Structure formats: C-alpha cells, structure tokens
Simulated scan of single mutants.
Amino acid sequence: MQRSDESEQSVDELLADVERLTDDDMTDGVSDDGGRSEPSAATSTRGGPGGSSVRDRLGGLFSPRTFLIALVLSVGAVVVGGSIPLLGFVGRLVGLFAVAFLVGVVGSDRHYLEVGLAGALASGLGFVVSTLTSAFFPFAVRLLSEYGIAIAGVGAGVGALAALVGHYVGRDLRDGLTREL
C-alpha cells in the first residue's frame, strides 16, 4: 500500500527523468553551468524535435516495426508452409524464404537483423511445436525435456539461414531492377 503523503509519478515524468539521466550532452545529470537542469519540453515528448525514437537509440541498426511485421509474416509462413502435406519442413523454409524475399524487394533499407531474428524465432517455435504434435504426446514431452534446446536451436539456425538468404536475394533483385544501365 502507498502512504497518503507519497505522490505517484506519472509515466511522462518517469520518462522525462530517464531522458534527463541518459541525455548525451549532460554529465551525470549536471548541466554545463554546474546546476541541475530540467528536461525541456522537446526532449520529454516522444518524437519531438529533440526527442529520440527507439531506432535512433539503437543507432539505426534495428527497426522494431519491421521486426514485428517480419515476425508476424514469418509465423504465418511457418504455419502455412508446415500445413502443406508431404512438404512440412521444406514448406516452412520456403515460406520463410518467401517472406524474407518480399521484405528485401519491398524495403528500401537493409533489414538483415530483423528478418534473420524473425525467421529464427518463427522456425525455432515451429520445430518445437511440430515435435509436440508429430509424436506420441508423452514421448514428445520427454524428448523435448531432454533435447528441447537443441531442437529449437537447430530450427532457429535453419530458419535464420533461410530468411537471410531470402532477404539477400530480394535485395539483390531490387538492386538489379532499380539500377540504371
């Protein structure tokens, strides 16, 4: 329980405090003139002129939006590709390749990290779920308890490889189509 004399800080105030503490042009929360500085309205608002987005904080290396889109499409590709009879495993990889290829062709920037991570997560999850559903359940649970990390690791590695190759081919096609002769 909270005492009545304590006041709750709003989320905006907490974000402003974090922004003030992590501001690059300040040293340990002390401004250049030696006094405590208050965060300006520009730095405390998201997306404002002085504010920074998650992509800016990560140095432009990772786009959460692209990652989420690639993850949703990759999970869909694993489900659809795995549901094709007689293809199963190969269908999943073809689906991951196709999603990464699409992101490579459509996107103007390189998104290898996002696509590779999304492919790895979707494929690793697909391997674990397919192990649970393809074998007798008590045996599958025992198998996953002993070798689950290895099964998920192999799935993640193969999925990341398929996604990275697909993204590379898609980017190469985009480069070939947009280059002047």
Rank of each mutant, 00 (worst) to 15 (best):
V115K: 01
F101P: 05
A150K: 09
F137R: 09
Y112P: 01
L102P: 08
V90P: 09
F127A: 14
G91K: 03
G124H: 03
S134R: 09
L144N: 06
F139Y: 07
A122Y: 12
V94C: 03
R142T: 05
A152V: 07
I149V: 14
F137Q: 07
L102V: 15
V115C: 10
V115Y: 08
G116F: 09
S108F: 02
D109R: 10
F136C: 03
L125F: 13
R142G: 12
G126I: 06
L113I: 14
V99Y: 12
G104A: 04
A152T: 14
P138K: 05
R92S: 12
Y147P: 00
R92C: 14
G124C: 05
A122V: 00
L96S: 09
G116I: 00
V90M: 12
V115R: 00
L117V: 11
A98P: 11
Y112K: 00
S108K: 06
F137A: 05
V90S: 14
R142V: 05
L132W: 10
G91V: 09
G107N: 10
G155E: 08
L93K: 04
A135C: 01
R92L: 08
A140F: 11
R110T: 15
L93G: 13
A122G: 09
G95D: 05
G107W: 07
Y112S: 04
G119W: 09
I149R: 00
F139Q: 06
S108P: 00
F97Y: 15
L125C: 07
F139I: 14
L93W: 14
V154F: 15
G153R: 09
R92G: 15
A135F: 14
A140G: 09
A120C: 02
A140T: 15
S134Y: 09
A156N: 04
F97T: 01
V154C: 01
T131D: 11
F137H: 10
S145P: 06
V105H: 13
S130P: 06
I149W: 14
L121V: 10
L113E: 09
L113K: 03
A152L: 06
G116H: 08
L132N: 11
A122T: 02
G91D: 04
L102R: 05
